[in-house]
Design a protein around this nucleic acid. Structure first.
Length: 311
DNA sequence: GCCCAGGATCACC
DNA sequence: GGTGATCCTGGG
């Protein structure tokens, strides 16, 4: 069992990205020498629900209360609008741009993971605002991508701060107190169904002082336990919040897709606790990134087989 | 009209 | 501690 660790020696290559250059032109940030940045793999893997591909290679969405357009042409990635200050303060961290994903799990000797890694090349873990991530993944429970996106869009339109960019109106994700002030009925009208009271109560608790940011300083186990005290947050949703917004790269969301991978390719089946223990042992402290590669690979594989659109 | 997918919760063992 | 029914709704 111990030999499991050896294929992952090269994880030490996971570190600061040295070869990327950033320049600022035409109101945007241009990233060059960035081999690991594939917008489709970043935005279409179920970690965020607010970006859409508006034309080939062009993604638009709202994050941190701002509009952002991400364009990939060849090896040139543009973030727009984005000045030097905004890059430093917002997007560099959002896209985890100081991290080198290239070496992670490289030649790991794990066939499924190697496949996922090649297939999902350019995938990055976002660092999203915790409250938005929390509510989004409460909505995601027992739900599919298309519906989740619609529900979140309507919630933002209902009580998020509106702003205009290039003549179009967009909506920031609402603050906790704004969301807590909505009635359960209004939340249901957004399409959230039986999750409406969970959303309202969770928003109320966050507005009332539940310290999401403070979870960063805690251990994985403690942070997860605390998150699960919020209504609508079970083990899987808690792991998503930890992985996608609070920097816990060892969090391993045990959804149906990853369970399928573990069964088909690792011959493993178990409850959520056992899944996490297996993942931590097998993939180490970046298990969450392995989860993303495997998830993305399996989902597209199944999608192509059966034309499914669930997350 | 019927059935299914998807995760959290609750009652029950 | 584990199991199974229930919640909601778009889509087949």
């Amino acid at each position: 069992m111990k030999a499991r660790c050896s294929p992952y020696k090269k994880m030490q290559g996971y570190g600061i990205l040295k070869h990327m250059e950033v320049s600022f032109e035409g109101g945007g940030a241009v990233l060059k020498g960035m081999s690991c940045f594939e917008p489709r793999h970043i935005f279409d893997n179920g970690q965020t629900f607010r970006f859409d591909e508006v034309e080939e290679g062009v993604f638009e969405g709202v994050a941190h209360g701002r509009f952002l357009r991400v364009t990939k042409k060849g090896n040139r990635i543009t973030l727009y609008p984005c000045g030097a200050e905004e890059y430093e303060q917002v997007w560099k961290r959002y896209f985890d741009l100081e991290t080198d994903y290239g070496m992670l799990f490289c030649d790991c000797g794990d066939e499924a993971l190697e496949k996922g890694r090649q297939y999902g090349c350019g995938l990055r873990l976002l660092n999203q605002p915790p409250f938005e991530t929390l509510v989004s993944f409460i909505v995601s429970a027992n739900n599919n991508l298309k519906r989740i996106k619609g529900i979140i869009r309507r919630i933002c339109e209902r009580c998020g701060r509106p702003f205009v960019f290039e003549g179009k109106t967009y909506y920031a994700f609402p603050e906790a107190d704004k969301l807590a002030a909505l009635s359960v009925e209004a939340l249901k009208e957004c399409g959230s169904g039986y999750r409406a009271p969970y959303i309202k109560e969770t928003a109320r608790m966050v507005a009332g002082g539940f310290d999401l940011e403070g979870l960063r300083a805690k251990s994985y186990g403690d942070a997860k336990k605390e998150l699960m005290e919020l209504p609508g947050v079970g083990p899987k949703v808690a792991d998503c919040i930890l992985l996608f917004s609070l920097g816990f790269r060892d969090a391993f969301p045990a959804d149906v897709w990853i369970k399928r991978v573990l069964k088909e390719h690792y011959g493993f089946a178990g409850n959520d606790r056992q899944v996490y223990a297996f993942a931590r042992k097998r993939f180490g402290k970046y298990a969450g990134i392995a989860q993303q590669y495997l998830f993305f690979w399996q989902r597209d594989k199944d999608r192509n087989d059966g034309e499914k659109n669930t997350i």
